[in-house]
């Protein structure tokens, strides 16, 4: 394998690992609020890494210009925080249960 192929494989593995860990977080963490942290962070980095692997493959290995991956990353970075923000707002509105060790529950808005 060439260096490029090693690089691409490495990026793919790291990406897959982080996406997996993000999903594990969804499965394992105790309440809605903590589960939200998995997809906003681990999955963002995992997907970023996969996108980077795809860019390296198309632009350097096949030597064709390909910019769509940049857009995927851009849209992801714009939409992930907004989605998380809306989800947690809805969760607070519905007064979902929090894990019993949660601190600062008194800071939640009353309505």
């Amino acid at each position: 394998m060439t260096t490029l192929e090693w690089l691409i494989s490495g990026l793919l593995c790291v990406g897959a690992l982080f996406v997996l860990l993000g999903s594990v977080a969804l499965l394992k963490l105790p309440d809605f609020y903590t589960r939200l942290h998995g997809p906003t962070k681990a999955t963002t980095l995992g997907l970023g890494s996969l996108v980077l692997a795809s860019m390296v493959f198309f632009n350097l290995q096949l030597e064709t210009l390909s910019l769509q991956q940049l857009l995927i990353a851009l849209f992801l970075f714009i939409s992930a925080p907004v989605t998380a923000h809306m989800l947690i707002k809805v969760a607070m509105h519905h007064k979902l249960k929090h894990h019993h060790t949660t601190q600062g529950v008194d800071k939640l808005p009353a309505d």
Binding site: Y33, L36, H37, T40, K41, T44, F77, I78, A80, P81, V82, A84, H85, I88, K89, M92, P109
Partner: peptide, 14 residues
């Protein structure tokens, strides 16, 4: 808010 959401173990809520 977006930065806080993507970085150190925090999600902006309200």
């Amino acid at each position: 808010a977006a930065t806080i959401c993507l970085t150190p173990g925090t999600v902006s809520a309200e």
